[in-house]
């Protein structure tokens, strides 16, 4: 027998009842889940956080594509129509930023940085350095193809734009992106500025 907070135990009893289980079997199920994910090297909380972010990505109409496939497909698309490809990646970045904002996120870039921690597996290193109204982003991944790096840069430009930043510096090389920007405020629907 283990002692648990009464309010939590009561809520769990309700969930157990909904699923036709006893509290005993539900708690055991939980423990087994925690043990299994711990064997994979993470805590249950980390697994649940990852699931929550995955659901958010799902709601935002993202899909998972194997990276080699994405790089090769991006290369072909870029070669066939580079301006249109850049535009759609840029627009996607703007949309993602605006989505964070409409959900009440005060710092869309911070939200994106948080998602990178869970999903940015293929990025060797990234930094988001803030100083007052300025931000400096550095992203490195030797795995990225040249064209994919350019497209991802366009996506980041879109996120910055949608988050109310003006880009002051941008350097792109294969697998390497550097961006500096200053916050100017997000444009409202009526064309005004909201800092």
């Amino acid at each position: 027998m283990l002692a648990a907070r009464e309010d939590l135990a009561d809520e769990m009893s309700a969930i157990a009842a909904q699923r036709g289980l006893t509290l005993f079997s539900l708690v055991n199920e939980l423990l087994e889940a925690a043990i299994k994910v711990e064997d994979m090297g993470i805590s249950l909380k980390e697994a649940v956080d990852a699931y929550e972010l995955t659901k958010e990505a799902q709601d935002a109409s993202f899909t998972l594509v194997l990276e080699s496939l994405l790089y090769d497909t991006s290369d072909l698309a870029f070669e066939n129509s580079n301006e249109a490809a850049l535009k759609i990646w840029f627009d996607a970045g703007v949309w993602v930023a605006r989505r964070y904002i409409t959900r009440g996120t005060k710092d869309p870039l911070g939200a994106y940085e948080k998602e990178l921690k869970v999903f940015g597996w293929n990025i060797s290193s990234y930094t988001f350095d803030r100083s007052g109204q300025d931000i400096s982003i550095r992203l490195v991944s030797p795995r990225f193809s040249k064209n994919f790096t350019v497209l991802l840069n366009s996506y980041l430009l879109g996120i910055l734009n949608g988050s109310g930043y003006d880009v002051t510096f941008n350097e792109v090389g294969r697998g390497n992106i550097r961006l500096e920007a200053t916050f100017k405020g997000v444009e409202t629907i009526n064309g005004g500025n909201k800092g």
Binding site: T63, E67, N122
Partner: peptide
């Protein structure tokens, strides 16, 4: 984790559709 090992990347679905269309 399998996705992570295989190198899964998140991409907006309509971006993927666009690229497939252009390809």
């Amino acid at each position: 984790q399998t996705n992570r090992v295989l190198g899964g990347l998140f991409v907006p679905t309509d971006v993927l559709d666009f690229m497939l269309d252009k390809c």
